[in-house]
């Protein structure tokens, strides 16, 4: 455990000093600020109050950008360390391969969460002036689901990294995975929908197979009592399991998307040449 925490500390320090993470944090912060200001401007134009449109914009940003960041950070981790000889150096010390994976994940999760916190922190500064007490729960769900879905992306990225031959290959696979999860699955389902009638089980599987969709529904769950903003999959979950059951199911799916790739990565690393 001590050694895993040491690896985590190492990864975190290295990541927060890297240009990639610094650039990503600034870009994400700027995007959050931009979306918030535009959202509030639209709201004022309609003579309304509250944080609704700004929060909706942040949901889309939150389920797309942090997972991409997580995937890329994770993909570069073990593959990059292997290329630089760092992985072999670490593995020659009294630390298990599983602990190396766990430490790497924890350290990078810290960097990712810092990035997300910076982005949402900037947005919160703007929203603080117009937010009402009843907005706190949706905003909390937004931050929580964004962190969770980003962390799932990181888990998948670390999993990719354990198998990749090099950093470039890992990054390419990570990007492809993001496109599939962010766009590909929705497009595929839309294309298949006329031909294949997805039953209740099909709808459930479609949500659980995509952590980004699970994160989006999770973020919108507290604000959508009727399920109208949740889309067909979310509406089905809400109708079938209720808010608490749907929430638990979605959290479970995201946790599984995080833990399973890490477990596979640990096993792969134990068998692979480092």
């Amino acid at each position: 455990m001590k050694a895993a925490l040491a690896v985590a500390g190492w990864e975190l320090r290295g990541a927060v000093r890297s240009r990639f993470v610094l650039g990503a944090a600034l870009t994400f912060g700027a995007m959050c600020l931009g979306v918030t200001l535009l959202g509030l401007d639209a709201l004022r134009g309609l003579g309304l109050a509250g944080v609704g449109p700004a929060a909706a914009g942040l949901v889309n940003l939150g389920v797309l950008v942090p997972p991409l960041l997580g995937l890329l950070l994770g993909a570069a981790s073990l593959a990059g360390a292997r290329e630089r000889g760092l992985l072999a150096m670490v593995a020659a010390h009294p630390i298990s391969r599983g602990a190396i994976v766990a430490g790497t994940f924890l350290g990078l999760a810290g960097a990712l969460w810092t990035t997300v916190a910076l982005g949402f922190g900037l947005a919160s500064l703007v929203l603080a002036g117009v937010a009402r007490v009843r907005d706190l729960a949706p905003l909390g769900a937004l931050v929580g689901s964004t962190l969770a879905v980003g962390t799932a992306g990181l888990g998948v990225g670390v999993g990719i990294s354990a198998f990749a031959r090099g950093r470039s290959q890992a990054a390419a696979v990570a990007l492809a995975a993001w496109f599939v999860l962010a766009l590909g699955m929705d497009l595929a389902l839309a294309g298949l929908a006329p031909a294949v009638r997805l039953g209740p089980e099909g709808l459930l599987v479609a949500v659980l197979l995509n952590p980004l969709e699970a994160g989006r529904i999770l973020a919108l769950l507290p604000t959508s009592a009727g399920g109208t903003a949740l889309g067909p999959f979310g509406a089905f979950l809400l109708d079938r399991f209720g808010p608490a059951g749907a929430g638990a199911l979605l959290v479970g799916a995201i946790v599984a998307w995080t833990a399973a790739p890490l477990a596979i990565a640990g096993r792969a690393l134990a068998r692979r040449v480092v």
Binding site: W10, R17, S18, G85, L86, A88, M89, A92, H93, P94
Partner: peptide, 16 residues
């Protein structure tokens, strides 16, 4: 692993 040290062919250090 508690009693050995290894320096490989490439300098395995974190540049950051």
């Amino acid at each position: 692993r508690h009693v050995i040290g290894l320096a490989g062919q490439a300098a395995a250090i974190d540049p950051n």
